[in-house]
Amino acid sequence: MSGRVTAVSSNGEYSFTKPNRDSIRLLTGIGVEGDVHAGATVKHRSRMAQDPTRPNLRQVHLMHEELFDEVGEAGFRVMPGDLGENITTRGIDLLALPTGTLLRIGDSAVLEVTGLRNPCLQIDAFRTGLLKRVVGRDEEGRVVRKAGIMSVVREDGVVRPGDPIGVELPAEPFRPLERV
């Protein structure tokens, strides 16, 4: 299983969207250099309000570009960085990866998948009705979150659009992704 990076984004200020960049630098145990969500402890405002000493399991947000195609068919125009992701991918079913999967990106960066992004109401503030397209229910009534996955940086590296992404699955039994 492999894919590629189609865009990279970061923002040093709290904002729902993140501007695209030529490259981003991933820092071990921290996240994207200069990004507002970088840090060893939680940086998302809602998480900081609960307990600012908790480990940051949301250092790097990845989103599959295929989601943009899907919501586009429903009339929503979404581009890389619009939903706050740091790395936009193509060719990997991110949502199907188990917890603990390693993503080897470019020459040296390694991310460990920690869980699913829990989409929030800000998505509807960005595009009214979009939240229902990225959160739904399956046939058994279970919540399905499609707004990407979260990860932590295990090895430093620079990531650029076009970089290959290799997938290294953890030892079985696999643990399915849960919201983090």
Rank of each mutant, 00 (worst) to 15 (best):
residue 146 K to S: 01
residue 147 A to N: 09
residue 162 G to S: 03
residue 28 T to G: 02
residue 133 R to W: 11
residue 154 R to V: 15
residue 122 Q to D: 15
residue 174 F to V: 08
residue 76 F to Q: 14
residue 121 L to H: 15
residue 160 R to A: 03
residue 17 T to L: 08
residue 174 F to L: 13
residue 13 E to G: 02
residue 110 V to R: 06
residue 68 F to L: 07
residue 165 I to M: 14
residue 154 R to T: 11
residue 148 G to N: 08
residue 67 L to G: 07
residue 132 K to Q: 09
residue 126 F to L: 15
residue 116 L to F: 09
residue 8 V to P: 04
residue 147 A to W: 03
residue 158 V to P: 01
residue 144 V to Y: 12
residue 154 R to N: 00
residue 158 V to D: 15
residue 51 D to L: 15
residue 46 S to K: 11
residue 130 L to A: 14
residue 156 D to M: 10
residue 14 Y to A: 07
residue 139 E to A: 14
residue 166 G to L: 10
residue 125 A to L: 09
residue 138 D to A: 04
residue 145 R to Q: 04
residue 147 A to K: 08
residue 84 G to P: 07
residue 120 C to F: 06
residue 161 P to K: 09
residue 23 S to G: 08
residue 34 G to L: 06
residue 143 V to P: 05
residue 141 G to N: 07
residue 83 L to D: 05
residue 165 I to T: 07
residue 153 V to W: 05
residue 25 R to P: 01
residue 52 P to V: 13
residue 34 G to H: 03
residue 7 A to G: 01
residue 13 E to Q: 10
residue 115 G to V: 06
residue 172 E to G: 07
residue 87 I to R: 05
residue 15 S to T: 13
residue 69 D to A: 15
residue 115 G to T: 01
residue 108 S to D: 15
residue 57 L to R: 15
residue 152 V to N: 03
residue 173 P to C: 05
residue 30 I to H: 13
residue 132 K to L: 06
residue 157 G to V: 14
residue 125 A to S: 08
residue 161 P to F: 05
residue 100 G to P: 08
residue 26 L to F: 15
residue 50 Q to V: 13
residue 137 R to N: 07
residue 16 F to C: 03
residue 5 V to D: 03
residue 136 G to C: 05
residue 40 A to E: 11
residue 38 A to K: 01
residue 171 A to T: 08
residue 2 S to A: 13
residue 91 G to V: 11
residue 15 S to W: 03
residue 46 S to P: 00
residue 171 A to G: 01
residue 17 T to C: 09
residue 10 S to E: 04
residue 31 G to P: 06
residue 74 A to V: 10
residue 138 D to M: 09
residue 34 G to T: 10
residue 93 D to V: 02
residue 111 L to P: 02
residue 94 L to I: 11
residue 90 R to C: 07
residue 7 A to Y: 00
residue 121 L to K: 13
residue 144 V to P: 03
residue 37 H to L: 10
residue 70 E to W: 14
residue 77 R to C: 01
residue 161 P to M: 08
residue 158 V to M: 13
residue 35 D to W: 11
residue 99 T to E: 02
residue 139 E to I: 05
residue 155 E to F: 04
residue 23 S to K: 09
residue 19 P to K: 06
residue 160 R to T: 04
residue 172 E to L: 14
